[in-house]
């Protein structure tokens, strides 16, 4: 039932960008190397109007990736059945090549906290997250990709590393992974390990999509560097280098440029996609 191999359910191994409504005209006139677009699911859960009209117009020319930010897959509460149904409605009419969500939680009781909050990695949280992924894949009738979070702190009670947790989820649920190399770089810096060491332990063969994006720099309680996942600037050089390293292990893959805050004009975002294309071009399969 999980249609992981159908070409219709696979993004092209090319650059994509996070779609912003203000780029609609410029993007269509001059897409550059951009072959696919990622939308935040929740922004398209209205009943009609311009958001839906734009997607209908873009669909013939760009593969689509639906990226959820509101399911709270990493939470302990049962998934919101109403929200899952809205997601199914969107996925059914848009027929995207990919659906992805985050290893994070955002809902507490009846409140949505509008951020991707962290969870400890334990047997108990694993069972909960795995059940949630099973439920999402059952309802949507397709494989989903799960994204690694950006971490600012660790939990005393964790008994597994993040890569062990993700690997076990892949084995148990058959889900794929969305590898955010910016998040890897942020978490590694913030928690004091090497990004390449993380990738060495990460199940690269399950990657269906890669994210790059910008981060900001701050300092923690002890004056050590603390990187913030801001999505508000160009991707940093070390993150591009990490992308190159990841592609060497994965082969050509869909690479998304995320830029969600202080969104730049189209030529600036397109230039980031061109850099992704250049990085990808070194890994074309022979």
């Amino acid at each position: 039932m999980l249609d992981a191999t159908s070409p219709a359910h696979r993004l092209p191994a090319a650059p994509g960008v996070g779609y912003k409504a203000q780029h609609f005209t410029d993007l269509r006139a001059d897409p550059g190397p951009v072959k696919w677009l990622e939308i935040h699911a929740e922004n398209y859960m209205g009943d009609g109007g311009r958001p839906h009209a734009q997607l209908r117009a873009l669909r013939p020319d760009f593969a689509m990736s639906v990226h959820g930010v509101g399911l709270s897959i990493g939470g302990q509460d049962p998934l919101d059945a109403g929200h899952l149904a809205r997601l199914k409605t969107l996925v059914d009419w848009l027929e995207p090549a990919s659906f992805s969500e985050h290893l994070a939680w955002s809902t507490h009781g009846a409140e949505f906290l509008d951020d991707l909050l962290p969870l400890p990695y334990t047997e108990a949280t694993f069972a909960c997250v795995a059940d949630h992924i099973d439920q999402v894949q059952d309802v949507l009738g397709r494989q989903m990709l799960l994204e690694n979070p950006s971490s600012y702190l660790a939990f005393e009670q964790s008994t597994m590393s993040e890569t062990e947790f993700l690997s076990a989820l892949v084995r148990r649920t058959g889900c794929g992974l969305l590898l955010d190399v910016n998040n890897v770089f942020i978490s590694a810096t913030n928690l004091g390990y090497t990004p390449r060491g993380y990738l060495d332990a990460y199940p690269l063969t399950s990657v269906g999509e890669i994210h790059v994006g910008g981060h900001a720099e701050d300092a923690d309680d002890h004056g050590a560097p603390l990187l913030i996942d801001s999505h508000g600037s160009a991707t940093a050089d070390p993150v591009w280098a990490l992308l190159d390293h990841a592609l060497a292990g994965i082969g050509p893959a869909p690479v998304l440029v995320e830029w969600d805050n202080d969104v730049p004009d189209w030529p600036t975002l397109r230039a980031e996609a061109e850099r992704a294309a250049l990085t990808l071009s070194a890994h074309v399969s022979g």
Binding site: P118, P120, Y152, E156, N190, G192, D220, D221, L226
Partner: peptide
């Protein structure tokens, strides 16, 4: 139970989430 990478308490790191949530909601 919040720690930095070296097992030290990480209260200020929690402020990143505080700030993210408040800023995101005010922006909304």
């Amino acid at each position: 139970g919040l720690r930095d990478g070296q097992g030290r308490p990480a209260a200020k790191r929690f402020d990143v989430y505080r700030n993210n949530v408040t800023v995101a909601l005010i922006e909304a």
